[in-house]
Design a protein around this nucleic acid. Structure first.
Length: 565
DNA sequence: GCCGTTTTCGGCCCGACTGTTTTCAGTCG
């Protein structure tokens, strides 16, 4: 994003920090938009977006029209991207990078490492022994632990730690904070917050837990470890009357907290991790919700705390009543051992019933997907018979006859309508031709959506968080087609997919498109990931009524049949 | 650069830590 780059360069140049921040803020709000920026520009409504004023609006219009931004072209002169990137090294901020560049002509990481080796940093203004040591450590850290991990990895770790510590009699409250509590799709490190009497004892118990591979710090109020999965986990101990404010503070997001503190200031309050204050007098902090209440708004669920309009909604009492895991009645996309899954139908049904589901779809792959052992027509017919037979043995549970039918490279479906008609619910998805252009892929998907038997489009963008960006698809057109035809879009819960993501999910909701939250489980022990999908749905402002699989079986069936008429 | 139930000018979130330039700037979350 160009505006973000401008912010970075201005920072390096030592510009006014408030100006830098406003470029950053503008970049962020644009990234969070659910509407098309060009449409907004065309309607001359850019300055309606909070954080975008006349100046930025002009720059955006210039960029849309010419593909360039004069401001950016002007300030980037003589500054290399590599130099800007040096600011990402922990401990190196804009001042130090600018000074190193000025005094030693350092451009990028290689230069910096050479200068360090040759001892050139010694004697520079503001640089001592310790500082040099910290830069070396920072580079090391930058190289090794740069990447964030999927919430799907972090979530079980936190559950394990919290369960392990819960029985500790010293602990009064324990909660995960940070981006994990907000259910962000990736997390950097894991923050756990505890209140209790004896901090040192609690921290000792924490660093001695099974699974800990390295203890980074162990004190009276904070412990920091690395666990098997190579993630850093921080545990902080606070007093009970600070737990609420500390939880609020450490949950973030940073942008949400900044906005909240601005409001607090205007109302004569001050909030920090230690509490909410009026002058020097502490007026709250034990409970998180009292902070929001004192600021004149409803308590905001953590998943919404991204400064994407949730604060305004809370002030007006208009927050959505977010979907909860307990609203989920079933799972509409799963694989059995008939294609590339592990469990049998019986095992799937038993597990689903244990999860209190009312139904579960068996949606094995279709014939063209050889790598996934896709079912041939006659095999799907057999599968249908087998499921019908099994369903007679269940009392208050139904296995749904389904398929994950391939949308082939030419846009045709992999099974005939005649066959699809025999199913309860049809999931369709793209598994090939990822490199086709945006129009082609969008065309394939829209064609599938218009098929009267297709009910759900699975993993609509095809992205894999750790591996690939996904194919190019015009989500606006897909959403439009779904709305027109009564087709649902999936939030795929598999931890590496989480596709739709939060922003697209909100986009779908705003358009009025129904969303299905499905695990795409191939093993029984992937079915818990429904919790991740619900988290993404909550981040997308979804309520139970927006989600297909919160409905009882009859209504899901009615949703599918309606399209066939 | 943005913004306004105190302001169209003068503000713009809070606190901790660290190292170094001994009173505070730089960096971080």
């Amino acid at each position: 994003m160009l505006l973000e780059r401008i912010a970075n360069i201005l920072e390096l140049k030592g510009e006014n920090t408030f100006r830098i921040n406003s470029y950053r803020k503008a970049a962020r709000v644009i990234g969070d938009l659910t509407d098309d920026i060009e449409e907004i520009a065309k309607a001359r409504k850019l300055t309606d977006i909070p954080g975008i004023g006349e100046g930025t609006a002009e720059k955006i219009i210039e960029y849309i029209n010419t593909g360039k931004m004069a401001k950016y072209e002007e300030i980037k002169k003589g500054i290399s991207e590599e130099t800007v990137a040096l600011m990402q090294i922990p401990g190196l901020g804009p001042k130090t990078v600018a000074m190193l560049s000025r005094e030693l002509g350092i451009v990028g990481l290689a230069d910096l490492e050479n200068a360090l080796r040759e001892g050139k940093l010694k004697g520079l203004f503001g640089i001592g022994e310790k500082k040099i040591e910290n830069i070396i450590k920072g580079i090391e850290l930058f190289k090794t632990s740069q990447q964030r991990i999927s919430i799907g990895m972090a979530y079980p770790i936190v559950k394990r730690i919290i369960t392990g510590l819960q029985h500790n009699s010293q602990i009064a409250d324990i909660q995960a904070a940070g981006s994990l509590r907000r259910m962000k799709e990736t997390v950097g490190d894991i923050d756990i917050l505890v209140s209790g009497a004896n901090g040192a004892d609690i921290v000792k118990a924490f660093v001695a837990m099974p699974g800990v591979t390295q203890v980074l710090a162990s004190g009276d109020t904070k412990g920091s470890v690395r666990v098997e999965e190579c993630v850093q986990v921080d545990l902080r101990v606070v007093s009970q009357d600070e737990f609420g404010s500390a939880l609020q503070y450490f949950t973030g997001s940073k942008e949400h907290n900044i906005h909240l503190r601005e409001i607090a200031k205007k109302k004569g309050f001050k909030i920090s991790e230690y509490g909410i204050f009026q002058g020097d007098k502490k007026v709250g902090g034990t409970f998180e919700d009292e902070i929001y209440k004192m600021l004149g708004m409803d308590w905001i669920p953590p998943e919404l705390r991204e400064n994407r309009g949730e604060i305004e909604a809370a002030q007006e009492g208009k927050l959505p009543k977010l979907i909860e895991f307990s609203d989920i009645k079933g799972d509409l996309h799963n694989h059995s051992n008939w294609s590339d899954g592990i469990p049998t139908f019986e095992e799937m049904a038993a597990y689903a019933m244990k999860m209190d589901y009312h139904y579960l779809a068996v949606s094995d792959h279709s014939k063209s997907l050889h790598v996934a052992n896709g079912l041939k027509e006659e095999e799907l017919l057999e599968e249908i018979e087998e499921i019908d037979r099994l369903n007679k043995t269940f009392k208050r549970f139904t296995l749904l006859k389904s398929t994950e039918v391939d949308i082939k490279a030419d846009g045709a479906l992999d099974f005939s309508d005649k066959l699809l008609e025999k199913l309860d619910v049809v999931v369709a998805s793209i598994h090939s031709g990822f490199k086709q252009g945006k129009d082609k892929i969008t065309g394939r998907m829209v064609a599938a959506i218009h098929n009267p038997y297709v009910n759900i489009i699975a993993h609509p963008t095809g992205r894999l968080i750790s591996k690939r960006a996904g194919y190019e698809v015009d989500m606006d057109k897909v959403i439009e087609a779904c709305l027109e035809t009564g087709t649902a879009l999936e939030i795929n819960c598999y931890y590496d997919r989480l596709d739709l993501n939060d922003i697209n999910c909100r986009k779908a909701k705003e358009a009025g498109v129904v969303v299905a939250i499905s695990t795409d489980a191939h093993h029984l022990d992937q079915m818990w990931m429904m919790e991740l999908g619900v988290g993404i749905a909550r981040r997308g402002w979804l309520e139970a009524k927006d989600v297909l699989n919160t409905l009882p079986f009859e209504k899901v069936k009615a949703f599918c049949m309606k399209k066939r008429r």
